[in-house]
Design a protein around this nucleic acid. Sequence first.
DNA 1: GACCTGCTGCGGTATG
Length: 762
Amino acid sequence: MTLKAERTTSLQSSAFDTLSEPVRRWIWQRKWRSLRDVQKKAIPAILAGGDVVISARTAAGKTEAAFLPLLTRHAEHAGSADGFAILYVSPLKALINDQHRRLESLCEGSGVLLHKWHGDVSADAKIRARKRPSGIVLITPESLEALLVRRGGEVARMFSRLDAVVIDELHAFIGTERGMQLQSILNRIEVATARDRIDRIGLSATLGDMSLAAEALRPGKGASVTVVEGKDEGNGVRLQIRGYLLDGTAPGDLTATTDDSGPPAKPAEPFEQSTVPSALAADLFRLLRGQSNLLFAGSRANVEVYADMLRSMCDQASFPNEFFPHHGNLARAMREEVEARLRDDPRPTTAVATTTLELGIDIGEVETIAQIGPGFSVASLRQRLGRSGRRAGKPATLRIFVIEPPIGKGRHPIDRLRLDLVQSIAMVECLRAGWCEPPLPAGLHLSTLLHQVVALIVQTGGISPTVAWKLLCERGPFRAVDKTLFAELLRCMATPENQLLEQSPEGLLMIGETGEKITESYEFYAVFATEREYRIIHDARTLGTYPLSSPLARGETIIFAGRRWQVIEIDDRARVMMVKPTRAGKPPHFNGKGAAIHDHVVAAMRAVLVSDEAYPYLDPAAKLLLDEARSSHLDLQLDRRSIIAHGEGVLVFPWVGTRKLQTLTLALLAREFKASHLGHAIELQECEAAKVMEALQDIAGSPAPDGQELAARLAQPALAKFDTFLSDQLMTLVTMVERISAKDLPLIAANALGNHTTHEVT
DNA sequence: GACCTGCTGCGGTATG
C-alpha cells in the first residue's frame, strides 16, 4: 500500500469526515496518519454542542481536539467582525505564546483571525482587536478581568456572538481563588450578553474523579457536561524509591537503637537545607549526567542547593555543566534559557526545578524524572511522571530519593517510623491504584467575592445589592454565600475604614473612595496575593527576585541562579540588590506557607506500616529502612494502639491528613493540653496517657462543635489578597470553613482512640 | 513541610 493510500484508510474515520473542508486540508498538510484517540472522541462531542471536558495526558493533542471541531462549527461565520467567536483562557502567558504558534496556520487556512491578549502584548494590538472583534482570542483571566472592568460598556458587543470558551489546564484552576474568579467572569459575560449558556470546553489532566472537573467547568450543573477521556497511549512506567541516611550512619542497625534507657529523644531537627548525603550526591551525578532529566527538589532553596552541588561536581570532574536551576524567583529570561536548552539543544540537560515545570509548557521529552522526598500530593507526582516516557518504546521513569535521619540511641518514635519513606511508598501505591487528590470542597472565598463585587460595580457603573447577589452567588460560583452573609460582606465593604463602596439614594451600589483607588492600579486584576521582593542584579542583568521579608545584609553571600554571590549594595527604595560573584554562598531563604497532606495518603501510610507486602521498586537501602519502620511500628505496638507514652509526655497517632490533625490539636489545646502537631502525630508535653484518653473519649462522645472556639485559637493572618478588608467576624468565619474541619472532630477523636480500651495504656 | 500564576493607561524619551 502506498503511504497516501494508507493515510486515506486511517483518516477515513467518521470523525475526520465531519470536519470542515479547510480543517481537513490542514490535517492533510500536516501529514497526520490518523487522528489521536482523544481527538476522535472529542470531535463528535463538540460538534453536538454543549459543555465538554477533554481529559488526557500532556502532549496527547487536546488543543487540536478542541479547535478542529470548533473551527468547523465556526466555518459559516468566518470573516464576520461583529464579535469574537472563540475565547481561549490559559493560566500562563507562556502557554498562550505556545498555543498561538500551534494554531496560526490552522486559523489562516480557515480564514479566522487569531489574537494573543496578555500583559506582554502591545496596547496597539489590543485596540485593533477590540475595534473589529472577530475570530479567536487567547487570553489570561487577569486580562479578561481588565477588559470587563475597563470596557464594561463594550462587553455585550464584543461577546454577543461568542460560540464557545476553551479553558486550558482546567485542573490548575479547580479549587483556587483564580478559578473562582474565572468562573465568575464567564458568568458575568453570559449575563452581560443575555445568553443563557455559552458552551465551555475544558482541557484537563486526568483526575481521579472527572465529575469534579465537570462541576468546575459548569458550577451547579456538572452532570450536564460531557466528559471525554483520552486513552493513555504511554509505554508503561519504571519506578524506584531509593533510601539514604545522612553521612556517618547506615540503615539496618536497628538492634543497637531500641534501647529505651536514658532521656527520651527529641525527633531529629529537619535537615539543614544544605545537607546532602554524599552517597545521594554521587548517585544523582552518576544517574542523571549524560542525558536529559527533570530533578524536582521540593523547594526553591533546595533547587539552588542541588543545582549548585551538581554544577560543582561537573567542575571537579572537568565536565561541562549540564545542571540548571528553574524556579519562580528566577528571571524569566534565565528560565527560558533552560527551557530552550531542554527543547532544542542536543546537549544533555537536567533542569533542577520546583513545580514550575509541572504545567504544560513545551520542553520536549526528557529521559527520567527524579524527585527528592515524597512531595506533597499524588496529583503532582502524576503530572511529573507524564513529563517522561513520551518517545515510542520508552517507559516513563521516576526515581524518588528519600533521606532519613541518622540512627542514634533512643531515637524518637517519629524518626524510628521513617515516615518520609513510608509516605513515598504510600503515594506511589495511591498512584498505582489510579487515585489522586480531589480539589478541596468549595470554601467561602470571601476575598475573591469582595473583589468581584468591586469589579462588577465598575463594569456596570452601579448595581442593586439583590441583583449583585443573584448574579455572583445564586447564578455565579459563590454558592456557599447566602443573602445574609452577602449583606454582611457589603456592610463590611462600606464601613468608614474600608470605603470600598457606598449606596446611592436609589439603593444602587456605587464605588467608594478606596474602591476608586484600588481599581485605578493595574494590581487590581489578579485575585491572588504576592510577596513584595527585591530584584537581584549582577552587571545590569536581573538574575531574579528575593523576598523583602528575608532581607540580606551587605557583604552576605547567597547561592542563587545556580551560582554563588556576595551582596555589594542594597537599594531599599528601588528594591534592588546588587551582587558580585564569589566562592562561598549560603542557601537562599524563601517563606513557605506549609503543606497539607490528604487523609487518603495518611491512611495509605498506615496500610504500608501494617502490611508485610514487599514493594519491588525499593532499592536495598529503602528496603532496610522499611523493615526498620515496620519493626518500630510493632515495637511501639502501634498496630494495637494509637496513644503511646514518651518521656514525660504522650504521642497520639490519629492517622488523618494535615487539616484534621490540626483540628484535633486545636481541640486538645482548648482542653489545656500542651499540644503541638509533629509530622503525622500530635505531641502532648507533661501529661499522662490516661488523661489524654479521657479527653479523646469525651471529644468522640460529644456533638461536633461549630468550630468558632477552635478558629479563635488559630492565628488568622490575611492569607488571601483582599482578606485585609474583612471584619474579625468574617475572618473567623473564613477560618472555620476553610482551615479546620470541626464537624469531623468526634470522628477524628474516635480514630485517635483506635481500638483502645482504658486498660491498655498504662 | 511548598509551589505557582497575573497586570492598564498614561506620560516620558528616543528613533525613523
